[in-house]
């Protein structure tokens, strides 16, 4: 067969991504090391010693870590439950998790503005019950961002985990228990290790997604900026394109580091891959 020509099928797609994705990102990244005609780390030094910027960097990392942890804690039992349901029920639960994923983040963040706002549903409810007299500030806090992000990304975690848990042979669990393993031991020794690949994929998606999300922190965080809203402010509001390139580079590098670390963890926990 004429195998010579199959590269032609791949070439257009490859060139498109090379020209419009890889090169622009490389150029931007490299330009952040270039100031006043010389190669320097000065930009990074001043970024990483500035309290305002450092605060935002750490807030972003804190929020992403918290969001990922909550998604794991909530997602794991739910995925376990759903993966053991019969086909029909499982389909309903998967569909109910996919549906919010296909809804715009603007809509989903907006719903939390309606719930958490000063005159929002939550404050109204608390006042009616008589727990509070004055509305509590929920909106425009870090907590609001975390709630919004968990709402945004939890379905990804659930779906990634269902994918691996479905394929677990539960006869193994029964066998372990008939040999005297407790429910907890059999879960930790069998179900958990076999779920690691899904856990890693889910965690990467949630962590990277939280690290770079714009809509949710913009609508729910108010003046509490994160890296993505800072990138927007520095470039389009303040016209500080050099600092903006540094922020973009940090976000890209952080993304790759996280993917690398997660892959390493996955290999360690599950040598069979």
């Amino acid at each position: 067969m004429n195998k010579k020509y199959f590269y032609l099928l791949l070439l257009p797609c490859f060139l498109f991504l090379l020209i419009f994705m890889v090169i622009p990102i490389l150029v931007t990244t490299l330009s952040s090391f270039y100031l006043d005609g010389r190669i320097t780390l000065e930009g990074y030094r001043s970024f990483l010693t500035d309290h305002y910027f450092l605060n935002i960097l750490f807030r972003t990392l804190r929020i992403s870590l918290l969001t990922t942890t909550i998604c794991i804690i909530l997602g794991f039992p739910v995925a376990y439950y759903v993966s053991k349901l019969n086909v029909k029920l499982k389909f309903i639960f998967i569909a109910a998790a996919v549906f919010p994923l296909l809804i715009s983040p603007v809509v989903r963040s907006f719903s939390w503005m309606a719930i958490l706002g000063r005159e929002g549903i939550f404050n109204t409810l608390l006042k009616k019950i008589g727990i509070i007299n004055e509305p509590i500030q929920f909106l425009y806090t870090e907590l609001a961002i975390v709630i919004g992000l968990v709402h945004l990304f939890l379905p990804l975690m659930i779906i990634a985990l269902i994918g691996v848990m479905e394929n677990i042979d539960y006869d193994l669990v029964k066998a372990a228990q008939s040999l005297g393993a407790s429910r907890f031991t059999s879960f930790i020794k069998i179900v958990f290790p076999l779920s690691v690949p899904g856990l890693v994929v889910g965690s990467v998606l949630v962590f990277v997604g939280s690290l770079t999300a714009y809509t949710t922190p913009q609508l729910l965080g108010g003046s509490r900026r994160v890296m993505s809203t800072l990138l927007y402010q520095q470039s389009l509001t303040l016209n500080n394109w050099y600092t903006a390139s540094i922020i973009a580079t940090i976000m890209i590098v952080a993304t790759f580091i996280i993917i690398g670390i997660m892959n390493k963890i996955a290999q360690k926990l599950n040598p069979k891959g």
């Binding site: 797609c13 490859f14 991504l17 419009f20 994705m21 890889v22 090169i23 622009p24 990102i25 150029v27 931007t28 990467v204 990277v208 690290l211 770079t212 714009y214 993505s228 990138l231 927007y232 470039s235 394109w241 903006a244 390139s245 973009a248 976000m251 890209i252 993304t255 993917i259």
Partner: peptide, 20 residues
């Protein structure tokens, strides 16, 4: 490479396209 746009932060992609 073909799958990577899922993981590349959209906001960074937009920013670099604007610049470039």
């Amino acid at each position: 490479i073909f799958i990577s746009p899922i993981l590349i932060p959209g906001i960074v992609l937009g920013f670099t396209l604007l610049k470039f």
